[in-house]
Design a protein around this nucleic acid. Sequence first.
DNA 1: CTTGGCACTCGCAGACCGGGAGTGCCAGGA
DNA 2: TCCTGGCACTCCCGGTCTGCGAGTGCCAAG
Lengths: 339, 339
Amino acid sequence: MLDDRKLEVLRAIVEDFVSTTEPVGSKSLAERHGLGVSPATVRNDMAALEDEGYITHPHTSAGRIPTDKGYRLFVDQLSSVKPLSPAERRAIQSFLEGAVDLDEIVRRSVRLLAQLTRQVAVVQYPSLSRSSVRHLEIVHLAPNRLLLVLITDTGRVEQRVVELPTTLTDDDVATLRQMFGSRLHGARLVDAPAALADLPDAAPPAIRPVLTSVMSVVLETLVDQPEERIAIAGTANLTRHSLDFPHTLRPVLEALEEQVVLLKLLGEVNDPTTVHVKIGEENNVEGLRSTSVVTVGYGPDGSAYGGLGVVGPTRMDYAGNMGQVRAVARYVGELLAGS
Amino acid sequence: MLDDRKLEVLRAIVEDFVSTTEPVGSKSLAERHGLGVSPATVRNDMAALEDEGYITHPHTSAGRIPTDKGYRLFVDQLSSVKPLSPAERRAIQSFLEGAVDLDEIVRRSVRLLAQLTRQVAVVQYPSLSRSSVRHLEIVHLAPNRLLLVLITDTGRVEQRVVELPTTLTDDDVATLRQMFGSRLHGARLVDAPAALADLPDAAPPAIRPVLTSVMSVVLETLVDQPEERIAIAGTANLTRHSLDFPHTLRPVLEALEEQVVLLKLLGEVNDPTTVHVKIGEENNVEGLRSTSVVTVGYGPDGSAYGGLGVVGPTRMDYAGNMGQVRAVARYVGELLAGS
DNA sequence: CTTGGCACTCGCAGACCGGGAGTGCCAGGA
DNA sequence: TCCTGGCACTCCCGGTCTGCGAGTGCCAAG
């Protein structure tokens, strides 16, 4: 159905449209790309591509623009992830080096990504559910009040205050600390319920009630409602595409303010080796139907700590952005693994 | 120079322009507001107001719009902070109740404020420099690694990992904990250097070197580079005013992404009882010259924990937004004081 | 299957134009 | 002295019209 030349025409249309923002016509296309055929031939191919739904034209006498389906084909078959330029590599290096704690790493990489891609960048903090416990500290704030501090292997620190029904002595707290610590240290958070299962039985009767209440808070915080955090940057880049978002900028901004939406975008990412692309209508999220989303997981091979990516107009430089997203993800993964 | 009626005319112009977004002419103004004078008279007053720089008109045959100076006069003399409607009170109540920890309070109030004012809302976390120490915990993560956890009276929890030049025993850490704890508990963070001044001398010689290094980290984290945090919401509201920001939406978004800029906006706020308003060019911040900023401190009378406010077009409902900002600040202040 | 030719479509930008809102000014009246 | 009605003037706004040009679709010939 689509011979090689037609695919070549589609590629040319996508590339031209992405770089010029203007519908591309048969003549200029035949000239600029060395296809070796006449505009009339190109027109025939275009008609075929349009029949198949890969391109469309805004009105009768305008050039062609790719459809979501056209972009999809382009991404899947016609482009390959673009490696970074030396300048970009250097930018990543200098931007991320010197970041010491997790907050710093995330904040810097989200800004870096926004700057590199000139799109809206989104970075998820390492997901608690995929982390394991480096340390769980129990601090005795007041006789009937505890502070739980969890530190994960990825450097996240979560805290939670627990109000107790009864009062405790420092010795009681030390016991608690020891009992939780020995069972959880090194365990993955998802395994916490199993690791703690025998706890009530093993506890001295005196502190058993308070232990179960602490335990329920621990499990709730760590497993049932693990707090996902997300950083975002570069929303100003959306305004560069006022043409792409005629009057639909608001829904995009609204969607980007919703944690849930962003998590949905990044949550599906599991494999840090492949870059995911959602194009236009493929996004299930209301408000992002006019955008494309490029995401990838970061972390050790096989299982990602979390995801990161960019959101931009469907008319984006897919090859370049995919490369940039992947590169940043790799650096972030290394940084976290090394710390 | 400006008699009462002229002021009345100015008020009418501001009110009409704010609600209609359109330059207001002498005729419609004389009709709608019961001034009891003819359009011609209004025109004379308008000419006077224009001479004084309070209003201007975009072109010869258009109505008048207020200048920054006009808004300033309006805010200072012609309007009073509007009390909230019962519906608004109820909204605040239901929005903020049930918020348990500080993060939750801040996140909810910034969304609330954005929703209430229909502007971009900004809330600063309680400033460390104005807080005092509720608890300082030192956790012995590894022989040569400590975790410092600071909890303030406003519920902020800050942590910092310290790499040590030497190794420590648990007993050493306990000593450290006791020495820091006893001196800092209840102290204001700004007083920390003084409170710790005698520490090196009081320490057992064995741990003195490590103590000083911990101390320097503590002081740096808490006093020298206290981390200020800020939450923001409602940027989508900016798009409602596409008329107000012809092509200047980008600089506004860019400015709002800069922590420093936001801190500058909120940092000057000290007194939680008075609402501050910066109008248009009064903003020193490049990029916010076309906006107005309404801010207020929150916290106990006299000294604020931090600031919050909204950013919107100069054409905003000052009276209403000032009331809403102040009301939210009061609720937040109460919530924090009560916890 | 490709190509050149050709008629056709249609958006775009500029020109033109009338209506209307608003202004500034002036002279007369309280 | 101040207010008011009248009046000429300005100038934006929206509509219509028009020519141009880019681009298309189709067809017949190579």
